[in-house]
Simulated scan of single mutants.
Amino acid sequence: MPTGVALRDVREQLFDAAERILLRDGQNALTSRAVTAEAGVAKGVLHRHFADFDAFLADLVRDRIARVGQQAAALRGSAGSGTVAANLADALTMLFCSIAVAIVGLVTARDGLRARLRAAGSTGVPVLSEATAMITAYLGAERDLGRLAPDADIDTLALMLIGTGHLIFAGRPPGTAPEAAEIRTVVSTVLVGVLR
């Protein structure tokens, strides 16, 4: 990149490059040099915008967590429409076909990143914690609408759905999903006895 050329949305450009590398090549290929090369920018650009590579990765994780928040609003808005199982199956597919599985692996593998996220107030496993909250809020809305049993333990159901969803998607190539029928079967099985 020539000196003096203004970069627009450089943070997002770098985040998108990192996401492509994670999905294509995995976390071991994710380096500052790889990110800047993928983004098509000079090597020093990343370090002009972030204190170090872990600071960059922490901001990447927080940015992708914000996307889970957007998905949560859409899922909660779907309460009362369609079927509960279909809504949840779609939400799990959207979540786990995104960068979520790769982010979990990245956070697990990098001690410095985990420490930085915890210091900033992150609890649990980033992305999975927010996804669990998303599912819990949706199940609560459906319970309030009478589509789930009034005594449904939505916290446990959300943990089961996120844990099972992560296991189903984690062993697959990034961006690929199991058959939709398999996901719906898992969701329906978890919800047995609470659907109305």
Rank of each mutant, 00 (worst) to 15 (best):
M1K: 10
M1Y: 13
M1L: 11
V5G: 05
L7H: 07
D9K: 11
R11N: 04
Q13D: 09
Q13S: 13
D16L: 12
D16W: 06
D16F: 06
A17H: 04
A18Q: 04
I21G: 10
D25S: 14
G26L: 12
L30S: 08
T31W: 00
S32C: 08
S32Y: 11
V35S: 03
V35P: 07
T36H: 02
T36W: 00
A37L: 10
G40C: 06
K43S: 13
G44C: 09
G44R: 15
H47C: 06
H47F: 14
R48Q: 13
R48P: 03
F53Q: 00
F53L: 01
A55C: 07
F56T: 00
L57Q: 02
D59T: 01
V61I: 07
D63Q: 09
R64S: 01
A66L: 13
A66H: 10
A66S: 11
R67V: 01
Q70E: 15
Q70M: 13
A74W: 03
A74L: 09
L75G: 01
R76W: 11
G77F: 03
G80K: 12
G80E: 04
T83R: 10
T83E: 14
A86Y: 09
L88S: 06
A89H: 11
D90N: 14
L92E: 04
T93D: 14
T93I: 05
T93H: 10
T93Y: 04
F96P: 03
C97Q: 14
S98G: 12
S98A: 09
A100V: 01
V101H: 01
A102H: 04
I103C: 01
I103M: 03
V107P: 03
V107L: 05
T108H: 11
A109K: 14
A109S: 14
G112E: 03
L113D: 04
L113F: 04
A115R: 12
R116L: 08
A119H: 11
A120M: 07
G121Y: 09
S122C: 09
V125H: 03
S129T: 08
A131P: 01
A131T: 00
A131I: 00
T132A: 03
T132F: 03
A133R: 07
M134F: 00
I135W: 00
I135A: 01
A137Q: 06
Y138I: 03
L139T: 06
G140C: 14
G140E: 15
E142N: 10
R143V: 03
D144F: 11
L145K: 10
G146W: 02
L148H: 02
D151K: 03
L157P: 09
L157Q: 12
L157H: 11
L157C: 08
L159H: 15
G163C: 05
G163V: 06
G165H: 04
H166M: 07
H166Q: 09
I168M: 15
F169V: 08
G171P: 08
G171V: 06
G171H: 04
R172Y: 13
P174R: 05
G175S: 08
T176P: 07
T176A: 04
A180I: 14
E182S: 14
E182G: 09
I183H: 06
V186D: 09
V187S: 12
S188T: 15
S188R: 15
T189A: 15
T189H: 12
T189D: 10
V192P: 10
V192W: 15
V192Q: 15
G193Y: 05
G193M: 07
V194K: 09
V194A: 05
L195M: 07
R196F: 06
